[in-house]
Design a protein around this nucleic acid. Structure first.
Lengths: 195, 195
DNA sequence: CGAAGCCTAGACAGATCTGTCTGCTATTGT
DNA sequence: ACAATAGCAGACAGATCTGTCTAGGCTTCG
């Protein structure tokens, strides 16, 4: 086989991967602006030159961090929904997955909103956030249609609000209780939207 | 009258007030961590020494900024609800007021959440945020009880999620549309909670 | 008139942040 | 064996941030 095709993804854990993991923990826990480069290379056990050779700038590291969060959220939700059978259960299942996430130790709300709150208006954060939100909204539209909603777009808009509100509530109240509440609300609204 | 009793609240606008106004605009628009002291004294047209003589530290200025936001939100909601007659309209009216706020140019979501997102875990921001959230939740409990909800606490928990979700959605999607959606949801949930 | 407060302008100290650069070591493919 | 690659360690530059301090101006009241 061509050895070149493996490079960079083999070996223990490349500097790039360790940097991404360290950035993920620190940026999410303390904020992208608060955490400095030095803390990240320290935790990753990597030289500063390696960071700049791999990412070029802190901004690009932030973008990679959010990109990774985006993919992780997609994977977490999609794989979490596989266990459900009926369309209705799958739609409500998004809130079951969210409940698990919100109960995770160290949960600090939505990484995209958090990063957005400390970034200037037209920054790199905005693009990825938009992308992530568009995906989630699209998922809800699909699930709403499958579940027989008369107006899937309208129901999806409602579910996005529930998702966002749960995320905020769980973070600010330091309790995952909001997720269960939101699931109940989603069930009520789904009933009203299919009747 | 005792002249001393007027001092500090009279005159054009004291350095303290101008500082608070400048901090309010800049902190809300760009974030408490991003905006430096120099930008604030610049906009306020005030000497740096005056800031430190009035507030003692940037942290204390942040606290005063959030305290002011808290009082402004209370006043805005309470006065906005006066125009409604029935308990049901008053409850839903919270989302009418929120719709107006979210449509304001320069709306950037919840000042408390934004500040919290860029502050360490146990900071001064947390206390004021908790205080603000407790007040809002209490208001919703009252309104829910007046509107005849069978379980006012439960309905209030739902309404808080709607409020938070609207705030996030309006900011991240750069559109106040979520507020109208949330009002519809609130009506549906209120009907379900009084039936 | 003259003292007391409040304010301004700006230099300064000390810390911290991003990003660059120089040397050195270990591994890997040919 | 040899060259290329990737990574490490850390000094360094330049900017920026919080907070302190000096020196002086303007108003107000006794």
């Amino acid at each position: 086989m061509s050895a070149a095709s493996l490079r960079g993804s083999t070996r223990k854990a490349s500097a790039r991967d360790r940097l991404l993991s360290a950035a993920d923990e620190l940026f999410y826990a303390e904020g992208v602006h608060t955490v400095g480069i030095d803390r990240i290379i320290d935790r990753a056990g990597v030289a500063k030159a390696s960071l700049y050779s791999a990412f070029g700038s802190k901004d690009e590291l932030v973008r990679a961090y959010l990109q990774r969060r985006h993919e992780a959220r997609q994977a977490r939700i999609l794989s979490g929904l596989e266990r459900f059978e009926t369309p209705r259960d799958r739609l409500l299942g998004v809130f079951d997955v969210l409940a698990e996430t919100a109960a995770t130790p160290g949960f600090r709300g939505c990484a995209f909103y958090n990063a957005s709150a400390e970034s200037p208006a037209g920054s790199v954060v905005e693009q990825i956030s938009d992308h992530n939100r568009a995906w989630l909204r699209g998922l809800f539209v699909e699930l709403a249609r499958d579940a027989g909603a008369k107006d899937p777009e309208a129901l999806a808009a409602q579910l996005v609000i529930l998702y966002d509100g749960t995320s905020v509530g769980a973070r600010m109240d330091r309790s995952p209780a909001a997720a269960a509440t939101a699931r109940t609300m989603a069930a009520t609204l789904l009933d009203a939207a299919t009747a």
